[in-house]
Amino acid sequence: MTSRSIMLEYVARSAYWLMLLASVWILLRGHNAPGGGFIAGLMAVAATALLAIVYDVDSARRRLPLQPLQLAVAGVLLALISGIPGVWDDNAFLTHQWWGIEVGNNVFKLSTVIIFDVGVFAAVWGAFATYLFALLDTQGEVT
């Protein structure tokens, strides 16, 4: 990056967390309304991309929970594992299990679907971050 923009840097710092928060909201919202792991993962990548472009690839990479490729693979693993409990009850793979926990008047629904969705979220975030960093890195070499 040839020129720095102080204002953009300042905004990006807080916008990063806001975007991640929004992506988690979309992730959880996916249960009853449009949303879900894939689209939330894309939003998270947008946040990472913002940091990578405004600052540099390294600082964006440092903010990820894992190395990008490992994040992607951990996501795939999580999604695969979430399908296994369903098999115990003689059901097909990926038959999801639901439990309700009553707290006061509310029922919090717990399920293996959320594990699957978090897995997809991590897989998309990690995979696209890998591509993104690879692209931005070569750009640096050329110019």
Binding site: L69, Q70, V73, V76, L77, L80, V87, F93
Partner: peptide, 19 residues
């Protein structure tokens, strides 16, 4: 599960080999 083994086994192996 047996039907899915031709895709699940390589997928798990792929994940393990990345780790």
């Amino acid at each position: 599960m047996l039907v899915l083994s031709p895709l699940l086994v390589p997928l798990f192996t792929a994940v393990l080999t990345v780790l």
